[in-house]
Amino acid sequence: MKRDGIAFWTGAVVFLAAVLVMTQVVGNQYPFFAGYVILQSIALAVAWSILGGYAGYVNFGTSAFYGVGVYASVFLVSAFGAPLPVQILTGAAIGAVMGLALGLLTLRMQGIFFSIATIALTIVIETTVTNWRYVGGAAGIQIQRPAVTPPFDSYVQMLFFVQAVLVVLAVAISRYIHNSWIGRGLQALRDDELAAECTGVPTLRLKLLACVISGALMCAVGAPAAMYLQYADPGSAFNLNYSVTTLAMSLIGGTAHWAGPIIGAILLGTTQQVLTVTISSEVNLLVLGLMLVLFVVGAPEGIVGLIYKLRGNQKEGEI
């Protein structure tokens, strides 16, 4: 267990150092633009899997949380000119409160009813923001980036590094949950809620906790996006694509292990970026659909599930 922890944190430090070095060495801005989107996908998929994967509550509200994160930043910048760390922390706090509210309202519902409620949430919030003039309404709003902080040369490079930090944070939290009593409780309630209750698991409280953590992370991930695009509009910020791709990444990667959503997000995020550049942004949606169908049929437990299965077969072969 302890050795695992050391390996994980060493990996995290090496990853952040590599990202920092990249921002200092690479001059071309495009890798940072594309890399930011991939990192954002990883963080969202990891955050999603805390409720959607571990607890099995399929949340279609990723775009609601992400969009609220974006608009929290828009509001803070327009009203107070708040700096990036304040935007992210406020986003996380709003996400946590929103997660708690969503949880209290919907977590007594199970299965498809919960999922439908989360779609409804997205629509309600998007409609509200669309009618809120202060943050630009339906037309959207332009945002001026402040001066960049050294050692970074450009704001996008800095955002790239910030998003990498958020990825490490999200993965560390998800990994902690997966390996602790919280993860065991969530897994138990995903398998059988009544049996979990009768084994002493406070199912509602654990689901609320998962919803709060997942919501806080998703909003925090959305917060820097306003600065990334220098523009926000409700149609893009609350785009249902975020919900669908995040869900697809987690499911394709597999939710049985904390690394699953990372693998799925890297695979799918990179493919999407490559396709957007080489063919068109419409084709990447087609590929997403095809991959989802392939995995649902061929490997319903995702890549991680496939690895477990192969390992299991190997072990049985040895015996």
Binding site: R184, R190, D191, D192, C198, G200, V201, A256
Partner: peptide, 26 residues
């Protein structure tokens, strides 16, 4: 504590993990 008429194990877990849930929470 109770058992169920139709067994309701935590199916994604091993026997040990099933018991660990009880030990963790109760």
């Amino acid at each position: 504590a109770r058992s169920f008429q139709i067994p309701r194990p935590f199916r994604s877990m091993t026997v040990a993990e099933n018991l660990m849930v009880a030990l963790d929470f109760a």
